[in-house]
């Protein structure tokens, strides 16, 4: 049998999906990690970036955080976190082995797209609109909630979409440091010369990534002011 046939066999066998450490188990684990890390990143990154954009400071930091994030390999950061005394490879509830280390790495790598997009979004609100808001006698707070935030929303959501893709990818890589997620099946498949399992799990990860991306794209379209007008923001 060829490798592709073996992979097909693996994916169509019920036993591959069920049970402890099966595909479904790992998929839920990875989704849980992704959602938690994304929410963590949004909770920290969005308020900070929106506020910096509102007061118009820290632009250097907001833009460069993306450049720094790109240059640091996710694998390297995960390796350092897992090898360190804290957080180390400890089990963390439903997040699996090295759960805390993985969550920290994921949340950190969610920050660059979130921060850069949110900051740019607020800064790009046109000066005329801001002047009009001031002229209407809006306070700084009112201007932020009623003018800047609604106008910035599409670009902010596009940042969340980018962050989601990034977090899902990083969650997969966590397996390289014996971490949780579907990646664990990929890595163990390759380590035990059971390539069909690794390839099958990779297929599942790829399909899930595409589904997440389509969902995020739909969410983005929902907040786009001029519906149907497909304005590419990135």
């Amino acid at each position: 049998m060829t490798l592709l046939e073996l992979t097909w066999d693996y994916l169509t066998t019920a036993g591959s999906w069920t049970g402890n450490g099966g595909l479904l188990d790992r998929l839920v684990e990875q989704l849980l990690l992704t959602v938690t890390a994304l929410l963590l990143g949004m909770g920290v990154g969005l308020p900070l970036a929106l506020w910096l954009g509102h007061i118009g400071r820290g632009g250097f930091l907001a833009v460069n955080v993306s450049n720094i994030g790109r240059a640091i390999p996710t694998f390297a950061l995960l390796a350092v976190l897992v090898t360190a005394d804290w957080p180390g490879p400890a089990q963390l509830g439903p997040y699996g082995r090295a759960g805390l280390a993985t969550l920290i790495a994921l949340a950190l790598f969610a920050l660059p797209p979130l921060v850069t997009n949110a900051y740019t979004a607020v800064r790009e609100v046109s000066a005329d609109v801001l002047e009009a808001a001031d002229g209407m006698g809006m306070s700084g707070r009112q201007r932020f909630w009623r003018v800047e935030l609604p106008l910035a929303l599409p670009l902010v959501v596009s940042g969340v979409r980018l962050a989601l893709v990034q977090v899902w990818a990083t969650a997969t890589i966590a397996a390289l440091v014996a971490g949780p997620g579907v990646g664990a099946i990929i890595v163990s498949g390759f380590a035990r010369n059971k390539y069909s399992e690794g390839i099958g799990a990779a297929f599942v990860v790829a399909v899930a990534a595409l589904v997440l991306e389509l969902l995020a794209a739909a969410a983005q379209r929902a907040v786009q002011p001029g519906r149907g007008a497909t304005v590419r923001t990135s």
Binding site: V165, W168, A169, T172, L176, F203, A206
Partner: peptide
């Protein structure tokens, strides 16, 4: 681009 690298290589 959305396919994670660790999944793209096996494929």
């Amino acid at each position: 681009y959305t396919v994670p690298s660790l999944a793209l290589f096996p494929l």
